[in-house]
């Protein structure tokens, strides 16, 4: 058993994934791309759909750009990258509109804004342009999931504290409300997201230090 784990941990793929999910996923780094999607973290289900859409876009844009990396002229690479990313975002947007219309309404413009997300562009520029398709794809997948985990984490606290629900199901028992417990309306508003992120970063600093 242990030898199997050692074998897995030594592969390049494992290192890419672990790096993006843990060592290199301080919220303060991922948050560069997170901010534009904080608006969808009021509820967990929109946050999860957003995380999936972003993972799809970053993984496949890495794959496509990596496949084309030898034929893209250096000085127009940004335009090519934006075109690939925008095409994938349109696909994601149309799929959401077709199969999850209500959630797509709630996500409104924020799916479209994946185009200007720093993470997608950053991975295309730093990883996909210089790596073979498979490692680039895995890197994109792992970065998407690392990003998504922070997004879902924020939405967990906002939905729990703000509405007393998780994924739409009430988890705070009625007895609490009868005793005078109240939902924290602040969490549903924009300032709540900023404050939750700030506290997350504090927690992370404390954990990484010890």
């Amino acid at each position: 058993m242990s030898t199997a784990i050692v074998k897995i941990t030594r592969t390049q793929t494992y290192r890419t994934v672990a790096d993006a999910l843990w060592q290199n996923n301080p919220i303060s780094k991922q948050v560069l791309g997170i901010c534009s999607s904080l608006a969808v973290t009021v509820q967990m289900n929109t946050a999860i759909v957003m995380a999936l859409a972003l993972t799809f876009v970053v993984a496949f844009s890495n794959l496509v750009i990596s496949l084309m990396r030898k034929i893209i002229p250096r000085n127009i690479r940004i335009i090519v990258e934006v075109a690939v990313i925008a095409t994938l975002v349109i696909i994601a947007d149309e799929v959401l509109k077709a199969f999850m219309f209500n959630i797509s309404k709630q996500l409104s413009v924020f799916v479209g804004l994946i185009i200007t997300n720093c993470i997608v562009m950053g991975r295309a520029e730093t990883c996909a342009m210089s790596n073979a398709p498979y490692p680039a794809f895995v890197d994109g997948l792992a970065n998407g999931i690392g990003y998504g985990s922070v997004l879902v984490g924020v939405s967990f606290f906002r939905e729990l504290l703000g509405a007393g629900k998780i994924l739409g199901f009430a988890v705070v028992p009625q007895a609490f409300y009868d005793m005078g417990y109240m939902n924290m309306g602040l969490m549903l508003l924009a300032p709540g997201a900023f404050i939750v992120i700030g506290l997350f970063v504090w927690l992370e600093h404390a954990l990484l230090k010890s």
Partner: peptide, 23 residues
């Protein structure tokens, strides 16, 4: 500022307070 909150953390919380003021 408390040590763990310096830099990014306090910036986010400040922004949150600003957002409250704008509301």
């Amino acid at each position: 500022v408390p040590e763990g909150l310096q830099g990014f953390g306090i910036n986010m919380i400040t922004t949150g307070l600003m957002a409250m003021a704008f509301m």
